[in-house]
Nucleic acid binder design. Structure first.
Length: 635
RNA sequence: GCCGGGAUAGCUCAGUCGGUAGAGCGACUGAUUCGUAAUCAGUAGGUCGCAGGUUCGAUUCCUGUUCCCGGCACCA
């Protein structure tokens, strides 16, 4: 019986017996056989060594193709595992997948891996590559695999076969050479030599077996891996550049804020940092006003009974701060919504009043786990650009759609266009019936559909009171941070007794929408700093202009220029120090000031100024009045 | 919170195989008035994160602790 193989160009070739991808590649050209990484068989990636025993459409993927990269990285993980087991006998293997930029492998070993170990392991990996061990696929019986791993002392692998793999699933083993094997879905390269040299081990970190904090702690070794050395080099260069943008580093260099031991997870804003904050806050305040919100302000602490009623205490009391006075316990607010409900409840509302939109720059405290703290991106005291919309169920979709449009406009205004949008769906621990969750989730989907956007869904990640849309931004080294959110909540109004009177004079609970665009002001400013590498756009720059006289004879005129700009609303400083203009230019350029206003004797006599704009070396001399206008208009 | 690493002058960092520390920048003082990315000279500045222990002696070794960094878990 002949096997018909269809090539990508439509040609069909018949074979008398099962053939492997490698056979086919060799049949075409030795060069192709050398470059081949894997083969797709009817759209599915297979090993080149696996016999194709049926009619199939195939395509040989060479090593330089993007589709091959994941296979290469996955191979790197296995080579890493073999290297570790050769160097450190007794270390157990678990899992090791490819990642966006490389790979990792999780090991069980009592002794921690050190930096020096990483170097030795990487060397051994290169050695295994050099040995060019053939990688072969075998299908094993379930019991045989369990017996093998148990005999080897690989209890994690054995556990996974028992608990993680269905009895009817095929169990594949990959051998690297004769003496090492791992259980894996594959596919893999034909031999370790195909991995190449463009990989590097970068760090080791602790992880939990199967991602559960109740389980054993494993050690994860991370590596980066690319198809060739140039790509690896480019990647390492990019990481180096990204590290220079770290908001914690820039905050020190630019004197924006600091944090200290006595207030872990909290921020001391310096004048320049606070100027950025004010620019952001004033902008967002304008958004509130233009989109129909009324700004309000709730108390910072409220009796714990209110948080028990809302459900927050049950779900989050371990992460809340409490304070006591006169035998009463108060919670420092971790959210603004219960406060806003109190404001809503202070009056009687008609359906005609809805939607009612409250907004607040609400300061919240959450006792985040110490290991979660990260600069100003993840803190214990933060301020949300929070808002709550009280509306009818029929109004939800249009409110959510309007919010989405507004949010996207805000991100764009701050220079962000690369956002990912997610809907977090019902978690295991939640309030309310499935029917209510169905309605809430479909309301969010409908609104996003109406707005014409794409999203991904995160099952189990919603808030306990409702599902949410999340807007995610990436920081300079690729970590994603949630900024905005829109949550539909059918529960809180009922729990906290919010009502309105409907057309039939009946009391109803409104739907409550929780929403934020920048999210945490702290985090958003951190992302802004990294995104712009500290060179914030003119309108956000803490110091927009510095007036620098060349000689002290021009100090008086420099003072006049500074006054004129300040009165026009420009955030301006003067630099009258007894230093050369070169020195001043260098310093303010380093400080990323957008405009340096240079005045010498000539400018003082002619009542002009010379502007030097950030990022250029050009100078432009113009009359003072014109310069003021330029700076007011945003240069 | 868990695993690993770290903490030395305002900042960036060096150093002490145990004998109480050093550079550059910055600050201060003086000189210099110099037209677009660092003018010169001098001076001051540190209980080496904190608390115990070992030791004749600890910034160095040990223990604990706080905070920070990386990873995981968590993130209303």
């Amino acid at each position: 019986m002949a096997i018909e193989i269809t090539f990508p160009d439509g040609n069909v070739k018949a074979f008398d017996a099962p053939v492997t991808g490698m056979d086919i590649a060799r049949g075409i050209s030795p060069g192709l056989a050398k470059k081949a990484a894997v083969i797709t068989v009817d759209g599915e990636q297979w090993d080149l060594s696996r016999p194709i025993d049926r009619n199939a459409a195939i395509s040989i993927i060479t090593r330089d193709k993007p589709e091959a990269l994941e296979v290469i990285r996955h191979d790197a993980a296995h080579v890493l595992a073999q290297a570790v087991q050769e160097l450190f006998p007794g270390t157990q293997i678990t899992f090791g997948p490819a990642t966006d930029v490389g790979f990792y492998y999780d090991f069980a070993r009592d002794t921690p891996f050190t930096e020096a170990d990483l170097e030795a392991i990487e060397q051994r990996m290169r050695d295994i590559v050099k040995r060019d061990l053939p990688i072969t696929r075998e299908v094993w019986a379930r019991e045989a695999a369990i017996a093998h791993f148990e005999a080897q002392g690989e209890s994690f692998k054995a556990e996974w076969i028992r608990e993680g793999i269905g009895a009817d699933e095929e169990l594949t083993i990959y051998k690297q050479g004769d003496n090492w094997l791992d259980m894996c879905l594959g596919p893999h390269l034909p031999s370790t030599g195909k991995l190449g040299s463009a990989f590097k081990l970068i760090r080791v970190g602790g992880v939990y077996w199967r991602g559960d904090a109740n389980n054993a702690q494993l050690q994860r070794i991370y590596g980066v891996c690319f198809a060739n050395d140039d790509e690896l080099k480019a990647y390492l260069k990019q990481v180096e550049e990204a590290e220079k943008r770290d908001h914690r580093k820039l905050a020190k260099q630019l004197d924006l804020f600091h944090q200290q031991e006595e207030a872990p997870g909290m921020v001391f804003w310096h004048p320049k940092g606070w100027a950025i904050w004010q620019a952001v806050e004033q902008y967002v305040r304008g958004v509130y006003r233009d989109s129909g919100y009324q700004e309000v302000r709730g108390p910072q602490i409220m009796d714990v009974s209110l948080w028990k009623k809302s459900g927050h205490w049950d779900n989050y009391h371990e992460n809340m701060f409490f304070t006591e006075s006169e035998k009463r316990t108060y919670a420092v607010k971790p959210m603004n919504c219960p406060g806003h409900v109190q404001i809503y409840n202070a009056g009687l509302h008609s359906y005609r009043d809805l939607p009612i939109r409250y907004a607040e720059f609400g300061g919240c405290h959450r006792n985040e786990p110490s290991g979660a703290l990260h600069g100003i991106m993840r803190v214990r005291a933060f301020t949300q650009d929070d808002g709550h919309i009280f509306c009818t169920e029929a109004q939800v979709e249009s409110e959510v759609t309007a919010f989405h449009r507004q949010a996207m406009k805000v991100y764009e205004d701050f220079g962000f266009t690369d956002l990912s949008i997610k809907i977090a769906l019902r978690p295991d621990k939640r309030l309310g019936s499935d029917a209510v969750w169905d309605r809430a989730e479909s309301a969010l989907r409908a609104a996003l559909r109406a707005a014409g956007v794409e999203w991904t869904e995160l099952p189990g990640e919603g808030a306990f009171y409702g599902p949410k849309i999340e807007y995610h931004l990436k920081d300079s080294i690729g970590r994603a941070w949630q900024v905005g959110t829109m949550q539909v909540d059918f529960m809180m109004p009922e729990r906290l007794g919010a009502e309105y009177v409907d057309e039939q004079s009946q009391r109803q609970h409104p739907v409550m929408l929780h929403r934020a665009i920048v999210g945490s002001m702290e985090r958003f400013i951190g992302i802004l700093i990294e995104h712009h590498a500290g060179s914030l756009p003119y309108w956000l720059s803490p110091v927009q202009a510095v007036v620098a006289p060349i000689v002290s004879d021009a100090d008086g005129y420099a003072g006049e220029v500074t006054q004129a700009l300040r009165q026009a609303g420009v955030r301006v400083q003067s630099d009258l120090r007894n230093e050369k203009i070169n020195y001043k230019i260098r310093e303010h350029a380093t400080q990323k000031v957008p405009v340096i206003v240079v005045v010498g004797r000539k400018e003082a006599e002619e009542r002009t100024v010379t502007l030097r704009l950030r990022g250029t070396e050009q100078q432009e001399t113009l009359p003072l009045a014109d310069a003021v206008r330029r700076l007011v208009d945003g240069v």
